[in-house]
């Protein structure tokens, strides 16, 4: 059974559909990349799922329950955590304090004690590889580390689904490789399902198990990476006429 089912999900901004009746399901443990040209509605779709920008129509069923219409904090507590492209960490706090907030308030196992929140935060930071920076101010972290911090903050609540919005943009080769590893590890060891919006195609091709292509807010293609990226429709929409398919 699918963990997440999108059913005719629509998000309009003043009459214009940014996401236009999108339907697909995501299985538990899948790493799904959502790709498409700029303005295709990828980030909007993620924000609709997360409750940051609730959909204007359609159903979003997560683990058998409706998410559409819930606000972001409730969605998070039900097990869907989101990491945005621009880190939304809190600068005036330490690395640990940031993650404890996610562990405490984003907990999917109901209200937890402060000590338990601390333990989960430590665990998440250990997993992500920031254990030696726990007492540092967030301001001293670089972009890559801040994104890892935000991922730790997401994972600390023990979510079942993680939504990643272009978290690999602007990274160097080493950072990119580390990011790919950590996402794969999160799935393999923690069992989280991942929906991931990305423009960095090398990362998509090496990590995604399935690709959904959006164009003008609609699903253009859906399938295994190699098949999808060879599809003539996708090549035209994504790279323009006359482009050479990705091998």
């Amino acid at each position: 059974m699918s963990l997440l089912v999108l059913d005719d999900v629509e998000k309009r901004f003043g009459g214009l559909p940014a996401v236009d009746r999108v339907s697909f399901g995501v299985d538990e443990g899948e790493i799904l990349a959502l790709v498409g040209p700029n303005g295709a509605g990828k980030s909007t779709l993620l924000k609709a799922i997360s409750g940051l920008q609730p959909p204007t129509a359609g159903r979003i069923t997560f683990a058998g329950r409706q998410l559409a219409g819930l606000s972001a904090h409730s969605v998070r507590q039900r097990g869907v955590a989101m990491v945005l492209q621009t880190p939304r960490t809190f600068d005036s706090m330490t690395v640990r304090d940031n993650v404890v907030l996610g562990a405490m308030f984003g907990s999917t196992t109901g209200r937890i004690r402060e000590s338990e929140a601390n333990a989960r935060a430590e665990e998440a930071l250990e997993f992500i590889g920031l254990a030696d920076r726990v007492d540092d101010e967030v301001g001293s972290l670089n972009l890559h580390e801040q994104r890892f911090l935000e991922l730790a903050r997401a994972l600390a609540g023990k979510p079942r689904l993680v939504l990643l919005d272009e978290v690999m943009a602007g990274l160097n080769e080493t950072e990119l490789a580390a990011s790919i590893d950590i996402v794969r590890m999160a799935r393999d060891t923690l069992g989280v399902t991942v929906i991931w919006v990305e423009h960095v195609m090398t990362a998509v091709m090496s990590l995604a198990e399935r690709i959904v292509v959006l164009d003008f807010g609609q699903v253009l293609a859906d399938g295994a990476p190699a098949d999808v990226m060879r599809s003539p429709d996708v090549v035209t929409a994504y790279l323009g006429d006359g482009a050479i398919p990705v091998e």
Binding site: S50, G51, L52, S71, A72, H73, S74, R76, Q77, A81, M82, L84, R88, T89, F90, D91, S92, M93, D97, V100, L101, G102, M104, F105, G106, S107, E114, A117, R153, A154, G157
Partner: peptide, 23 residues
């Protein structure tokens, strides 16, 4: 942690909501 939750909403409400905090 409750006090930091208040500060987080002042600093970045959307970021706080993403943590599961109800503004």
């Amino acid at each position: 942690t409750a006090g930091r939750a208040v500060r987080s909403v002042i600093q970045d409400e959307e970021g706080a909501r993403l943590c599961g905090i109800n503004p």
